[in-house]
Every structure is written in structure tokens, then in C-alpha cells.
Design a protein around this nucleic acid. Structure first.
Lengths: 220, 220, 220, 220
DNA sequence: TATGAATGAGAATTCATTCAT
DNA sequence: AATGAATGAATTCTCATTCAT
């Protein structure tokens, strides 16, 4: 049972109006790509719709053929990025493996994914703190993540491998929050960016917290 | 040696222009108080300067007598709130106490302070994700907090009470981040708000992580 | 070789954003025309952008589609007026003509042009004394004019028709300045407005100054 | 009879409210001095009343004890500067001197005075192109100057020393304008700043224009 | 579909002037 | 006389959104 990570959201809500013609599809895609560039460059708030259309090499009017506004195209950007963000090369670790090994693999996958998409994560953070809809979206993602990890913890407890005194959900909130915060600090704020050290500490803290035996000498 | 919390910043940078007369001082204070109300009610972005002056019962012009804009008055609000935010009744726990007890006291103090100032913390989060200056400010605060806890961890390691395999700084980043994230989730997002459960889990995870012996039956 | 006047600047620096469609061109032109009306009526400083858009029968926003502000549209007004200001019917006087005749023709052309565009010249004077960019522009125009006349003077000296003791550049500065000042006084300040008297004196002083023989009885 | 220059205005219109006490006199003077500094530094338009009071080290309110606004204090500045501007060391040249000598002396006096007060002259130019009252003032000064020179020219004509075909007033306008324009170009715009060359050419042009015999070899 | 011009509500900001102390 | 806080009218500028072509 994989702890920490996996796909979070399988619904393929196509955001905004879908194009009919092939030409339309190309235009829409250009807009989404342009929006990502602009958002990452200027931030959500500073990004003007015209910046996006300029970057996409189309007119202002065309924008409204596919999207109703900034929020919607931002949602489309996130939607488009979901796949690359959440299939972090999915750790191919056998479930029979030692817990510590699985946890490390999960952490590595998470951190690598975060690092790859740091700009986008920062953006999501920005927008979630501004817009209730995206706050809900982020929370939903987080919840799925937390619940999955809670299940993993519960499982370990059932198998007698983890501290039974811990509340699985709350502990999952704590540890999942810990790893996402570490990632944010490292890859967005550039505070403590040493990847190996990061992974080692994260994994060790996680294992210690659950009272899982984690071989000292093992490093990434 | 107290882990987790304490004053973070003693510098009293007076933000904005300081009034000379008593009357001026009253007006300035009214503005800061009004700004806090408006910011907490409407959020940083939606808050209009006129909302603030209306709330403070003064004219637009007066605003500019003391502040150069929204950013500056926000800084003033944060400055004014600093004291109540960072003296969380400072846990008066003897240093001779067991580590677990100290950690719990620290965590309780932190969480209580966060809960009391949740709206402001949310605001700071919002603004820090938008404005580089406030991002820097938040980071500075965080760093102080992390360093303090890192010292605590190091101390415990030196005394043979904590897992020596952990890097103190990185571990502190992980655990400090964990607690602040838990607080954010609980008091801002209202996810896992049960205070006692929160405190118990946080403290247990913290202790486990450091491999400190923590009495199972002990609860808040 | 024609003294005093001619085209001054052939560069067609398009000022502000150029429209793409015909409709846009019409709007832009309406704005420039309106601006000229408003500037001439109210002066540069009193002219409000809204006055201009009202006069042009378009919205405020439209103004900013084509210009970044008052300065820019003023530059556009000057640019648009350049042609009518600097082709004062270009005196078609044979170069073989007596110097005095050429000078008179040049002076007449200059004064007529100035009179026709007095309001605009006043405006330029106003703005040049306020804004360094326009100061530079006026100076550049003036320099071209002065240099042209300096060449004319040098030519006359070479041909033995003008006082060789005069420094051509400085003399040109003096005489060119004289005529422009006379024009300003006459047509802007309405001091000494008698056109014929103006032309006669200007021409005679110019000729005397260069020690060119100028027939006493000849009048305009 | 001295051509070109002399005092222009003897009226001692005290501008603004006159102080009663000695302390008041000091304050008023400080304000005028400060205003000159600020005007010369920032220009008339950019100068804010508070800049002036700050420079004068007094409060905003005090300003209104002595002046009704920017215009009035500007008038006071000009008034205070009048003396130093118009007694250019008054050329002590005997009236029996050759005309050319007198003219040169007058020109020198004018140019030196202008150079000394260039910043102020620029200011006056600026303001005169903006404010009708100051336009009138500058015109009045100019007129006095022109009339004085016209008398000088007439005198020379009567004595058979100057070209009788010239209209004295118009010629004076031309030549007086010429010298003031040269001075403006040289000392404000820094175009043709060589003082000696300036003086030589101005004087020679002036003499030639009037057909006064002017010794070629004579230089400043 | 695509274009790009037109719109206008809305917010920030300035600074001369007044006035209570 | 001096102070400096308070005032608020006035204007600029932005940009999401609409719409005629």
C-alpha cells in the first residue's frame, strides 16, 4: 500500500468551452500554454488577460471564445498540469517492501514532483489564498492525500508496525503537512534546498514519528 | 531551553509616519485599528483605502498623512499585532522539566496564539504569497522560529535525549513547519479543529520524531 | 541658397500606438484633433484628458488605447501640425535673386507661418518651458533653423556680400532668434502686430546686420 | 543716453502681508529665501508649498500668515530678486562716448546680469507662459526695456549716427529681443555659451543693424 | 472563429487650504 | 505668531468585458 502519493483527482472536468474545430483546439491550447507562461512569470494577480492573448498570439476577443475569465483559464492551466504534477513517475515499489523503504520512495516521488512544478505550486498557493474556489480545490487535493496516508498509517498500526497511540488522521495531517511544507520552503522559498538532506530528514522524521524501524545507515 | 516559541523580533520599526501631537497619534491609531477590521473582514485585496478611512472616520487625505498606501498600513497592522501574536503567554515551564513536557507546553502556546490570531495569520499568508516584502518578513519570522527550535533539538541531542542521526536544522524545519501547517489547517481552513487532539498528536509526533520518551497516558 | 526657412524635420516618428483598422484610425485622428482644440482653448496645463475625450466623443479608456498620457498626445498634436507649420508655402524665390529679396521672402514666409500657427507656437513655448522632452524638441528644431541660416550667411560671406567679421553661427543665432522673438511678441503677445512694418524692419535689420545692400525704397 | 539697460521698475510693491514683529520679518524672509531655493531646484510647477515650508523650517500654516498662495510667494521672490537682477553694476560709461562703446557696455551689462540670474530668468519664462499676471509683468518689464532702447535709437538717428530708414520702436523690439533671446539660449539652454563671442557678435550685429560705425578690431 | 476597438466603472493619489490648539 | 493635523475635490489611469465587423 503506497503511502503519501498517487493521483489525487481523476475527474477530467474539462474547464471552459471546448473547441469544435481542429483550429479551435489549437487556439485553445495556445491560450492555456500562454497563460501558464504568463502566470508563472507575473503571478496570478499581475497577469492581465491581454498579456496572455499577446503571448498566445491571438486577439482579446478570442480569449472569451474559450474562457469566461482569468479564474477559468487558471483552472484550465491547473487541469492541464495535473497529470505531470501527480504522476511523479509513480514509485514502483513493491508493497511487500519494508515500510521505511516505501516511505522513502513516496517522499522522493513527492519532493521530485514538487520540485519539477514549483512555480505552479507557488501559483496554486497564491490563488488558493485569494479565491475560495481554488482554496476548496487545494483543500480537496490535500484531503485526498491526507486520507490516503492516513490509511497507510492505519494499515501499519494494524500490522503492529506503527505506534498505536497515534490518531491516524491527525498524524497523517501532521506528516503530510510536514512534507508539503518542507517542499514549499525548499523549492519555492529556497530555504533548505539540499535535496538529499531533505529527503533523508523527512523520511527519518516520518519513520520515527510512527516508530517504524528505520535503518540509520541507509541514505538516499 | 524552550522549544518552539518565544519572541521573534524585538525591533520596533515604526511603520509609516509618526504623528507629533496627541491628536495625530489618536488618528493614526484609529486608522490602524480600522485597517485591521477591514482587512480581516474583506481580505487584503478587496480592502479599499476608503473602506479603511470610513471605518476610521477620517478623510482620504488623512490616510496619506500617515501611510503611503495599502502595503504600509498593512505592515503597521502586523507591527501592532506582533506583540499579542508573539507573546503567547510565553510558557513558563522550568527548563529542568522533562523534554516532553516542555514540548507540549510550547506546542500549546503556539497553537493557542495561532488560534487567537487566526484571521491575521491567514492575512499574512495571503499577503506573503503576493508581495515579496511580506514574503521576506514571513520568512524572517519563520527562520527565527526554526533556528530557535533547532537549538533546542541540538541541545537534546547533546544531552543524549534525542535521536543523534537527525540534522537539527532540517529536522527543525520539518517539525516547525508541521506545527504551523497544522495550525493553519485547523484554525484557518477549519480542517481538524479539535484542539486537544491536535495538541496531543502534534506533541506525540514531535517526541517520537526526536525519539524522546513520551508518556502514553499523558494527555493535555 | 534659401535663408531662414524650409522643412526642418522629415522624420515621421509616429507618436503613440498606431491603429490597425480604419475605424481605429478615425478614432485616433479624432483624439488628436480634439486635443488640439482643447490645448489651444485651455492651455496645456488646464487641459484635462476627459476634456479631450469628450471633445473627441469617445470614452476615457479609448484615449489610453492610443496614448499613454497628456504628453504623448501633445507630441502627436505637434507631429500632426508639423507639416502645416513648416511648409509655409516655401518661398519659391530663385537663388539668383538679390540676397535682400531672398531674405525678405524668407522672413515673410516665416512670419506668415508663425501667424497662422500662433496658438500652437504659444503652446509649444509653454510646454517647452515645463517639460524637458519638449524643451529638447524645440531646441532641435531651433538648431536646424539656425544652422540653415548660418550656412546662408557663410555663403554670402564667401561671395563677398556679407560682413566677413561676423561669426556665421553666432550671427545666425542672433538673427534667427530675433525673427522668432519678433513673431512671438507680435502674434502671441500682440505687441507690435503690424505685419508690414514687422517684415520691413526685420528684413532691413537683417540686411544691415550682414551689411547687405538693401534698397531703402523697397517695401513689402 | 544709455541704450539697453537700466532699472526697469522702481515701484516697491511689497508683495503679501507684511510682518509686524521682528520675529515675523525673519520668518517671512526665510520663506522667500526658501521659495527661491525650491523654485530654482524644482521649477514653479513642481514646487509644493510644503517643500517651501520644510526648506524654511516652519509649518504649513505659517505660510498663509504671509502669503495667499504659490503665485504670491513667487511674486515676492521676483520682487526680492529685482534689485540684484537689474543693477548689473550699471555700466559707468560716459554718454559722450562713441555709440559703439556704449552699446557694447550695455550689452555686456545685460548679458552678465542674465548669466548671474539665469535660473530666475528661466523661472520667469516658465511662469510667464503659464500665468497671465506674470505674463503681463514680464511684458511690462520688456516694454520698458524696449522703449528705453527705442529712445536711444531715435537719439542716434536724430544725431545722424543711425540708419534713418528704421522704425525706432520696431527696431528696438527686434534688437532687444535678439539680445534677450541670445542670453536665454546661452545661459538657460546652454546653446552658444562663449561669453566673449556672444558679446562681440551681439554688439557687431546691433551696430551694423543701426549702421553705426563699429571698429572691426575692437573686441571685448 | 477571429479580430481588435470601445467601453466605463472603480480605485488611488495629490496637495492647496482651513482651522483648532 | 506658529503649529501641524484634517480635509476632500479633482483627476488620472487600468483592464476585464462587450460587440460590430
Amino acid at each position: 500500500m503506497s503511502i503519501i502519493e498517487g493521483e489525487v483527482d481523476k475527474t477530467e472536468d474539462e474547464v471552459g468551452r471546448q473547441p469544435v474545430t481542429r483550429r479551435g483546439a489549437r487556439t485553445r491550447q495556445a491560450l492555456v500554454a500562454a497563460a501558464r507562461v504568463v502566470f508563472e512569470r507575473d503571478g496570478y494577480l499581475n497577469a492581465r488577460l491581454t498579456d496572455i492573448t499577446v503571448e498566445a498570439k491571438c486577439s482579446t476577443g478570442t480569449f472569451y471564445t474559450y474562457f469566461t475569465g482569468k479564474e477559468e483559464i487558471f483552472a484550465a492551466v491547473m487541469e492541464a498540469a495535473k497529470n505531470e504534477m501527480l504522476h511523479p513517475g509513480t514509485p514502483h515499489v513493491s508493497d511487500d517492501e519494508e515500510p521505511g523503504v516505501i516511505i522513502e520512495a513516496s517522499n522522493r516521488a513527492y519532493l521530485e514532483s514538487y520540485r519539477r512544478n514549483a512555480k505552479l505550486m507557488q501559483l496554486l498557493e497564491q490563488v488558493a489564498n485569494i479565491d475560495p474556489d481554488f482554496r476548496a480545490m487545494r483543500q480537496a487535493r490535500g484531503r485526498t492525500f491526507v486520507e490516503r496516508n492516513a490509511k497507510g498509517i492505519e494499515d501499519l498500526q494494524r500490522r503492529g508496525l506503527a505506534d498505536p497511540a497515534l490518531d491516524p488522521m491527525m498524524t497523517s495531517r501532521a506528516l503530510s503537512g510536514m512534507i508539503s511544507r518542507l517542499a514549499f520552503n525548499a523549492f519555492v522559498l529556497h530555504e533548505g534546498e539540499d535535496f538529499d538532506e531533505l529527503l533523508r530528514t523527512a523520511t527519518r522524521v516520518w519513520c520515527n514519528a510512527l516508530r517504524i524501524d528505520y535503518p540509520v545507515d541507509r541514505t538516499s
